[in-house]
């Protein structure tokens, strides 16, 4: 097990290096460097700029700068945000965590809904429920998340105005709560705020995953070993869930790795609409203020997350599928 993980890690190093290199080159191509904004700031002195230039090695050739940045990155020093004048690591910690809250809730909802829907569709193909869910799946895949988010906000606002229902819209916490509330109450507050954006976020993955699971289940249910299991006299429930579903879920498990970064990246539009303080709004503000270190580091960190996610799904796959060996 441990050698397997180690070997996978070693294989991932080139991808990570190349990805950071791409991020670095893109930023290098951008007009101006990390200090061009600071240089226009009248309060910044020439000495300060000189210090920062040497600190970040901006007076050295590009490849040396890259290795310096990479070295700093590995030590956890992601550079300085000029917009907020604080270390990038401090800056992106909060938003990254917020994005992960949305992603976490979404993943749970996605599996909780997509698996039963997919299995139901496979067990009763072309029934009314199956047709209805595939109709909904088309709907979920076709509607842009930000448009759906706006529609949801509109519906919520109208319900609020007519019934006075106190469902929070937008933001992460309600400002009206007193400061000395218990941790549990605080977590509940965040959860309530995150619920609607997560549901909207998850609509796409439910739509596609339930279709994939349905197709896989249909295919597995026709296999010989399922007939063998039935011939042995196993109950329907056991055949479906223990024998068929386990294999049908493999592609979904393999895609869990893509879940981490895709949902953080894909959470983007929903975060913007609901003014959820996640990574995308921060990145956009960095973009509009030319805050280059923030852009570059977010890119690097989310790539790292993707790679970790891939490793995770490899491990999960190996754990679930007996045909995959650790060696």
């Amino acid at each position: 097990m441990v050698p397997f993980i180690l070997r996978r890690l070693v294989q991932l190093i080139p991808t990570f290096l190349l990805a950071t290199l791409v991020a670095f080159v893109i930023i290098q191509l951008a007009p101006g460097d990390f200090l061009s904004q600071l240089k226009e700031n009248p309060r910044a002195t020439a000495v300060q700029i000189q210090q920062l230039t040497t600190l970040y090695g901006l007076d050295r050739p590009g490849w040396q700068q890259y290795f310096q940045w990479l070295f700093n990155l590995l030590r956890g020093d992601l550079g300085l945000s000029f917009q907020y004048n604080q270390p990038v690591l401090q800056l992106i910690k909060g938003p990254a965590l917020n994005s992960l809250i949305l992603v976490g809730i979404s993943v749970v909802i996605s599996f909780a809904v997509a698996i039963p829907v997919g299995v139901y569709g496979a067990l009763r193909p072309y029934s009314f429920g199956d047709r209805f869910s595939s109709f909904l799946a088309y709907f979920g895949l076709g509607i842009p998340s930000f448009f759906f988010a706006l529609l949801a906000i509109y519906a919520l606002l109208v319900t609020q105005q007519t019934t006075g229902w106190d469902m929070p819209i937008g933001g992460k916490t309600s400002g009206s709560l007193p400061a000395d509330i218990s941790a549990g109450r605080h977590a509940w507050d965040i959860f309530v705020h995150a619920l609607v954006p997560s549901i909207i976020l998850v609509l796409r993955s439910i739509s596609s995953d339930s279709r994939v699971i349905r197709g896989q289940m249909l295919e597995t249910m026709g296999q010989d070993y399922i007939r063998t299991a039935r011939a042995k006299g196993l109950g329907d429930r056991q055949v479906t869930y223990k024998h068929a579903l386990k294999i049908a879920l493999l592609p979904i498990i393999a895609s869990i790795g893509g879940f981490l970064p895709a949902l953080i990246g894909g959470a983007g539009f929903v975060e913007v609409v609901f003014s959820w303080p996640g990574l995308t709004p921060m990145l956009l503000s960095a973009f509009f203020n030319n805050d280059l270190y923030v852009l570059m580091s977010t890119l690097a960190v989310s790539t790292l997350l993707y790679i970790i996610g891939n490793l995770l799904s490899d491990l999960l796959l190996a754990a679930v599928d007996p045909r995959i060996r650790y060696t």
């Binding site: 991808t15 990570f16 990805a19 791409v22 991020a23 893109i26 930023i27 191509l29 951008a30 007009p31 970064p261 895709a262 953080i264 990246g265 894909g266 983007g268 990574l279 995308t280 990145l283 956009l284 973009f287 030319n290 280059l292 852009l295 570059m296 977010t298 890119l299 989310s302 790539t303 993707y306 790679i307």
Partner: peptide, 14 residues
């Protein structure tokens, strides 16, 4: 490996 939306935003910054 690079999240699409972030890559687009960064590339647009060019």
């Amino acid at each position: 490996a690079i999240p699409g939306l972030f890559l687009l935003i960064t590339l647009r910054a060019l």
